[in-house]
Design a protein around this nucleic acid. Sequence first.
RNA 1: GGGGGCAUAGCCAAGUGGUAAGGCAACGGAUUGCAAAUCCGUUAUUCCCCGGUUCAAAUCCGGGUGCCCCCUCCA
Length: 477
Amino acid sequence: MPIRFHNTLTRRIEEFVPATPGEVRMYHCGPTVYSTPHIGNYRTFLLGDLLRRFLEWQGYKVEQVMNLTDVGHLLEDAEEGEDKLEAAARKARKTAWEIAEHYAQEFFAGLEFLHFLPAHHYPRATTHVPEMIAMIEALEQRGYAYKVASGNVYFDISRFPAYGRLSGNTAEELEAGARIEINPEKRDPRDFALWKIDAKHQMQWDSPWGRGFPGWHIECSAMSRKYLGESFDLHTGGEDNVFPHHECEIAQSEAASGKPFVRYWLHARHLLVDSTKMSKRLGNVHTAQSLQSLGHSGDALRLALQKAHYREPLNFTLASLDEAERKVARYRDTGVRLRDAAATAAATEAAASTRQAVDGLRARFAEALADDLNVSVALAVLDEAVGEANRRAPHGGDAAALFGLLRELWGVFGLLQKSLESTPLADADILALIAERDAARKARDWKRSDELRDLLKQRGIELLDGKDGARWRRSGR
RNA sequence: GGGGGCAUAGCCAAGUGGUAAGGCAACGGAUUGCAAAUCCGUUAUUCCCCGGUUCAAAUCCGGGUGCCCCCUCCA
């Protein structure tokens, strides 16, 4: 089955063909660790996770890298000001290094909460300065870099005519915009910094151009080359990264290696919250931690952040998260029901009609995602599969087949990866209360039965009455 | 000011020329001691507005309105 992705480089949906058959190497622009990542960041990162899960499900061996930007970069093109990392450090009365470490840990906690598959590498800029220096030296040797009196080193755009290919920002268009402040030490306003000298900057390294720090763009070029090679298959990031960040990465990497850099560029649309962009002023900035402390589950947040196509606007609201919460609960209930129905009945082979239904659903789900990750259609197929499972109320082999399918499809979305592994064990006293209520119901003592149901509810246990006594689940999240 | 994208029911959202998927919510029904869960059914003559092309348009073209992204740190 051909897989197709929208490639920002060509602005077209193209068939995805990795350089090495069966293997995919991909790089994701990760967080700048100067504040707690918000759910918009995670939406973008989830694009990478979905790609990973989908491609692996399709049988590819995937090598995945996500960087952490832990060098501040506000000074990119300005001569004054303070970068965000250092500003955060000053506020917190900590060093930039401490700030970076703190927020890196928060970032990883968010990944865990959202059940990300760990990337194979999470390289940090501060531990790859030698690689960056080596790349800048290569650029210098090839005549793509120049040093000015201040000690700063810039990339020479005039030597790289393809600059602008990714973003469509041609020289003429950038000039028409006329919002680029002229930095007199640059030969061309579009030239960008490779190495900066600034005595005030906390993070400093020795280099052939003096003690200073690397430009923002060079880190991704240097680190992707180290872990994935000079050319690789997929590179993702937020839509804001298209220009200038990725444009500059292409220029540096291709100028340094003389080879094509990335085959397919995928960019995620920014998340909206309450129909507008997130801002501290509006108080609509949500983080994984803030939603977790409201009692929400990682599964529901994942679903809420993945339910729209990655290139379409997605509006996040707390109501949409509640909806996702109910949906996940439905999935979980169906999953537990199937699992138990498969386990309790004698092992049998699934009926032909079940196998046919399972294969058909799986194929349609795969086709949807192969079509540039059409998650809306894929989730519709998933809901159909859940409905099918509930309708058939299967046992034995049929239940096992449907359970296997659902686990597979949920797995591609990263849903219910942990909560189905083990039935949450109830404390003995809770089991006793449930047994007591079952006895009360049998005796038609509805008053006592309802009392016990309320009592259990207070303790977070929801009962699902059935013919053979009550099933139960942890309520809510 | 320049460039790019989006606009489909109360809400979310598929669908890029052939006569509107799916989900949530709501309502009706089955089931239930009552609920919950589950199942069945109902809910857009219409796709932001105006004009055009076509036998045929949510889908193509022109104009307008609104929102988002980039051009400046940003997922």
